[in-house]
Amino acid sequence: MATDTRSRDTRPPATEAAVSEDREFSFSTDDYAYLRAMLKEKTGIELGPTKQNMVYARLAKRLRKLGFKTFRDYIEFIGTPAGVDELGTTLNALTTNLTKFFRENHHFEHLGTAALQEVRARAVSQGRRLRIWSAGCSSGEEPHSIAITLLQSMPDIKQWDAKVLATDIDTEMVRRGSEGVYPAASQEGIPADIARKYFEPHGADKVRVTQDARSLITFKHLNLIGNWPMKGPFDAIFCRNVVIYFDKDTQRVLFERYANLLVPGGFLYIGHSENLFGITERFKLLGRNIHRKIA
């Protein structure tokens, strides 16, 4: 999937003109092409040709902080052994993180009713084990919403071996998610009784998800196109608004791997702008981007 480019220098040529002469930092079209190719190789995420201004905005602060004058200098730095840590920061900056609590709430409604009913039915013969994966968890709102849904829907959850795995390629997002601290305004749209029960004040204008919800979740750094150390099986996987950044071939591989990790009849929740048409035949659409594993 990812190719090895260590044997050749793919940095942009020094002759390419800058896109905009009035910018603080010179940023050529070849500079952008290099960063696009690097992101695709390292993460599988494919930026479109219209995202150059976004990349400039996200990385300009790093150039400013480190004292570089051009993107070419910055690119050369992250390609050296001394720039390995900065390369991770670059990848973090270029991955998109936009989420909220109970986003696309119908998924959590389905999880708390139909999905958990089937989990309970399986428990009769297979034991009280529950596993859910939030793949591409960003800053943690999604897995915390999952945990709150479990607490609300399963009064006997302490009698279960219940765990939520939350993973993301962005190490800073993983750190923030594990802390469970958010602006107080992030509770907007959450029913008042849920907000009172599962969020507590945490300093000025901030709240923290309560310990009973946080204790259900394990946050881990994971590159979806790399090795997956977990074995599953999972009862449900949330992978929402993630695969839109991958090409079709990468999507096919990802959904094959998801299917392999789900229990028979397990559920897959994807984003409202995503679909599995022409990608995989291992899932059946139940409606509103809720899919069941059929093979």
Score class of each variant (00 low, 15 high):
Ile45Thr: 06
Thr70Gln: 06
Arg64Ile: 09
Thr89Lys: 15
Arg58Gly: 07
Asn105His: 13
Phe77Asn: 09
His106Thr: 08
Gly83Cys: 00
Leu59His: 07
Thr50Met: 13
Leu91Gly: 09
Leu98Tyr: 13
Thr90Asn: 07
Val84Pro: 09
Leu116Arg: 03
Gln52His: 12
Ala115His: 11
Ala115Thr: 15
Ile75Leu: 07
Ala121Cys: 08
Ala114Gln: 14
Pro81Gly: 04
Arg62His: 07
Phe71Trp: 06
Leu87Lys: 03
Pro49Arg: 13
Arg103Val: 09
Asp85Phe: 12
Lys61Ala: 11
Thr90Arg: 02
Ile75Phe: 01
Met54Glu: 03
Glu46Phe: 09
Lys100Ala: 15
Leu47Trp: 01
Tyr74Gly: 03
Arg58Ala: 05
Glu46Ile: 13
Lys51Cys: 05
Ile78Pro: 03
Ala60Cys: 05
Ala115Ser: 14
Leu91Asn: 06
Thr43Val: 11
Pro49Leu: 13
Gly79Lys: 12
Val84Phe: 10
Glu86Lys: 06
Thr90Glu: 09
Leu111Asp: 00
Glu118Gln: 14
Phe101Lys: 00
His106Gly: 03
Gly79Ser: 14
Thr43Glu: 08
Met54Phe: 07
Gln52Phe: 12
Arg62Lys: 08
Gln117Ser: 15
Ala82Ser: 14
Leu87Ser: 02
Ile78Tyr: 12
Ile45Pro: 00
Lys65Leu: 12
Thr50Ser: 15
Gly79Trp: 04
Lys42Pro: 07
Ala93Cys: 06
Glu86Tyr: 02
Glu46His: 11
Asn53Leu: 14
Leu59Trp: 08
Phe101Tyr: 00
Ala82Gly: 12
His110Ala: 06
Gly48Glu: 01
Phe108Leu: 01
Leu94Tyr: 04
Ile45Gln: 06
Glu104Tyr: 08
Glu109Ala: 11
Leu94Lys: 04
Glu76Phe: 10
Pro49Asp: 12
Leu91Pro: 05
Phe108Cys: 02
Asp85Cys: 11
Asn92His: 06
Val119Ile: 05
Lys100Ile: 05
Thr89Trp: 13
Leu87Ile: 05
Gln52Asp: 14
His106Gln: 07
Pro81Met: 04
Tyr74His: 04
Tyr74Val: 04
Gly79Ile: 12
Gly48Ile: 02
Tyr74Ala: 05
Ile78Arg: 03
Pro81Thr: 05
Phe102Trp: 08
Glu46Arg: 14
Leu59Ser: 09
Leu87Glu: 10
Thr96His: 07
Gly67Thr: 03
Ala115Gln: 10
Leu63Glu: 06
Thr99Trp: 00
Glu104Ser: 10
Leu111Thr: 02
Ile78Phe: 12
Thr50Ala: 14
Gly67Gln: 01
Glu109Thr: 13
